[in-house]
Structure formats: structure tokens, C-alpha cells
Design a protein around this nucleic acid. Structure first.
Lengths: 171, 171
DNA sequence: TCCCCTAAGTTCGTTCATTGAACCGACGGT
DNA sequence: ACCGTCGGTTCAATGAACGAACTTAGGGGA
């Protein structure tokens, strides 16, 4: 939507946020970036979104300052998309949405998150159940849950079958 | 502006949540329900969404168990939409999205939230800055912030110019 | 009774975003 | 020179959102 998906009349910061991250696919792009996905082709294979939409979403997020696009090799020239601090601050939103869906919409857990220094899970406020702190993304490990789906074969899905630190480059 | 619906291939509870609450307008409907909006016409005037879309979203949310539709008067028959416990659990998501938008996308605060027993604000985890608890919705008051917009004249916007307890019928 | 009003939808033609397939261009390797 | 890969862009078809008009169901006043 880039052009056209606005909630103009709304005097509300929730509406402002949704104009940016409420478009189709966008929050899943951010979820993947939190997991550590960085390259266009990896987003594409993991999300299974249309290429044109993915490209449009990535540039919108870069322009808004949620992602940063940077050169990671020169021959051939290749860019990667990494979360900015602003983008990282969306982690609690993504975590809570996932937790809500897990509790109310799906039978069992697909992925679990652990605060690694403590090796303890996270609660309903994204806080460590052991130390009570809100962990930095770098200190959180994703592990497949009991209801994980093992049928997907794209590199990101395969890499996430093993425990993995958030933000660590994937795959 | 078609936010499509399903993210079928995704083995992820975030995707499951977004299939339900990620459609256009849906999260704003839930925000309004948290504020205390209950009647079709009030949602309509406050959101300024197409009637057909609003009607479809409301029935989807009722079917999913996020809202409950109930008769509040018999002559003439009128129904209202109120949040279920499942719907109320989306408050942290809405709050954090709003906070993120306020911090990164808009100049200043449009609305502020207070834990009333303490008369203290909420922090980045939706916890009371005074007592540290995560307040029940009934104990939270919304107040217009310094950047509030006073141009809208629909009943809900007008009612929100004064402090108001969440979930209390509006307007 | 007749007429007008309100609230809550539904219908329908138009507009606009999403989709998926095909195409493009830069580069590396053989 | 040719092939393959990565990261896009283009384009026709689809389908969701839009907004105005219409419907349904009852209330109240003359």
C-alpha cells in the first residue's frame, strides 16, 4: 500500500504505527529480521510472499528507519537488511502477538524463547521468568516447540529447527 | 488496500494472530472496544471505515471469540459488541504499538494512560510506574495528551477529550 | 393510518493493493 | 561466450476496500 493505506482521520498513535507496520506481510518481515534473516532471498523463501510486495515492504521499512540496508559484500554487490534500534523495539509487540496467538488460536507451542544467561523462559510481559528483567534480543534464544512443523525446507525454516540466538545472522 | 487474510505457509503463531487481527481496521476496532466503544454506529463514526468492512470485521471478531455480541435493549432490538477476556488480552499489544508509534512516528503524546489507584503512568511493559503491577483494564484511565487533536466531532472523540476509564461504555 | 426518523446492516459498481509469472541486469564461474 | 544466481521490476488478473445507495425493522408524531 505504501500509497493509499492510511488511517488519516485517526488521532491516535496506534493508527500511526499501523500505517507503517500494519500492512500485509510487514510484521512477518520484522519477525524474520528479529530471528536474524537478512537477505532478500531468505525473506522471500521463508515468507513465501510475492517478490514485488517484499521489495516494496523492505524499502518502506528502510525509509522509515525500522531496517537499515547495508552492503555486506562488493563482488558481486550485495546488501542486507538489519534491524535498527527502532526496529528492535518492536520485539515486545511481536512476542506478545505470538504469545496471544499461541494461547488462543493454536493448539500448542511452535517456538519458545529463553533468556540465555538464566536459561529461563519469558512471561506475558516478555520478561525473564527467572531474573525478571526484559532481556536484550541478543540474550534470547529461540527453540522449536512441541508443535513445530518440520515440513518446510527453506534455509531459514531448517536453521530454526535448532536453537538459535535472535539477531544472529540466519541461515 | 486489500490486506489479504491468510499466511498459510507460516508455521508461526504470530502469523496465526495476524490472520485474525492483522486485517485492515481490525486492531483499531479492538482499540476502540478497549476504550469502551460498543455500538456499530459509534465504531463507524469514530473509525470512519466503510460500513461493509466494519460489519465484516465485527462478525469475524465475534466468531473468533474476541468480541461478544449481546442484546442491550429489546425495543427496538439493539446489540452491542463487548470485549471477551480473550479480546482484553490484546491490550498490551495495542498499548505497546501505540507507545512505539508515539516514540518513533509522532511528535508528541496524543493520549496517556494512568493506573488509577496509584494515579501513575504506565511504562514500556504496560506496568504501573508506581506499583509495578500490570493493571487491569478497569483500573486504567485514558487522558488526552499534549498533542491531542480537538477537531473531530464524533461522539467518541468528544467523550475522549475528558479522562475516561477503559472499558466503560463510550460515549 | 401515513410519514419520517434512526440504527444497523447489505448491495453493488469503482478503485486500488496483492498476486504470481515473466522479464531484466549485474556479476561470477567455467 | 554461456550459464547460473541474486535481487529486483513489470504486468495482467484477481480480489479486497471504498463509498454511495438501498434495505430492514422498529419508534414516534400528526
Amino acid at each position: 500500500m505504501g500509497l493509499g493505506k492510511n488511517y488519516e482521520g485517526q488521532d491516535c498513535s496506534v493508527a500511526r504505527s499501523l500505517e507503517l507496520v500494519g500492512e500485509r506481510w510487514t510484521l512477518l518481515v520484522i519477525r524474520d529480521a528479529i530471528y536474524g534473516v537478512r537477505r532478500f532471498g531468505d525473506f522471500l523463501a521463508h515468507l513465501d510472499a510475492p517478490r514485488a510486495v517484499l521489495a516494496q515492504r523492505l524499502t518502506t521499512l528502510v525509509e522509515a528507519g525500522v531496517l537499515e540496508r547495508r552492503r555486506y559484500q562488493d563482488a558481486p554487490p550485495r546488501d542486507e537488511y538489519v534491524l535498527t534500534p527502532m526496529g528492535r523495539e518492536l520485539w515486545p509487540v511481536v512476542y506478545l502477538l505470538g504469545r496471544w496467538g499461541e494461547r488462543h488460536l493454536s493448539a500448542r507451542s511452535r517456538r519458545r524463547f529463553f533468556h540465555m544467561p538464566c536459561d529461563a523462559g519469558l512471561d506475558g510481559n516478555a520478561a525473564c521468568t527467572e531474573c525478571g528483567a526484559i532481556p536484550e534480543l541478543e540474550d534470547i534464544e529461540v527453540r522449536p516447540g512441541p508443535a513445530a512443523d518440520h515440513r518446510r525446507t527453506d534455509p531459514v525454516s531448517v536453521a530454526l529447527r535448532a536453537p538459535h540466538r535472535l539477531l544472529q545472522p540466519l541461515p
